[in-house]
């Protein structure tokens, strides 16, 4: 038999790396999992080929959503007919909209601008056009805890220009 010691070392290194990556993922997911206490609730309803939004104070918006910078929002996402997926690529928000069930995801926009909202689960005839616009405006941040910012590119070049062009 070839000297199998190298193989054990190799497998050991691989396993250690996997454990490290798993722990890192677990550590980040821990914070992503539940929204901050005082986040505003937005009801998002997907239906075949358009998104409708309802703010806490009852105002309804179709195809457009106006949020404030620095305010955490909790999206309660459901669907009217088939599966959709509420996705804001630039703010890494993604949750499936399943009829008869409410999924929640939260985000705190940290940069003003116009972003793309799109559907990320196949839903039929114009799934590729099921998009909406997200406007993040200046806002008074009601977040008590310190916010850590790193210089990750605010918006991926593609999607920002996308919203303007279509």
């Amino acid at each position: 038999m070839g000297h199998a010691m190298i193989e054990w070392i190799y497998v050991g290194v691989v396993v250690m790396l996997l454990v490290y990556l798993g722990a890192a993922a677990w550590d980040v997911e821990r914070f992503l999992d539940h929204p901050p206490k005082d986040s505003k609730v937005i009801k998002v309803t997907g239906q075949q080929w358009l998104w409708t939004f309802e703010h806490e104070d009852g105002t309804r918006e179709i195809g457009e959503l106006h949020l404030q910078e620095g305010v955490p929002y909790k999206f309660e996402v459901t669907s009217r007919d088939v599966n959709h997926a509420f996705n804001i690529p630039d703010l890494t928000v993604l949750i499936d909209a399943v009829p008869g069930r409410i999924n929640t995801v939260w985000v705190m926009p940290d940069a003003t601008g116009e972003y793309l909202i799109q559907c990320r689960e196949y839903c039929g005839f114009s799934h590729y056009q099921m998009r909406a616009k997200l406007f993040v405006e200046e806002g008074v941040s009601n977040v008590s805890a310190p916010i850590e910012t790193q210089d990750i590119p605010v918006v991926l070049p593609a999607t920002k220009a996308a919203v303007v062009s279509n």
Binding site: N87, P89, Y122, H127, Y128, A158, T159, A162
Partner: peptide, 18 residues
């Protein structure tokens, strides 16, 4: 995919990188 182009789309956002 990292630029956010969804799967199974007949058409994509007409933006230069995509």
């Amino acid at each position: 995919g990292l630029y956010g182009q969804p799967r199974r789309t007949f058409d994509y956002v007409p933006v230069e990188p995509l």
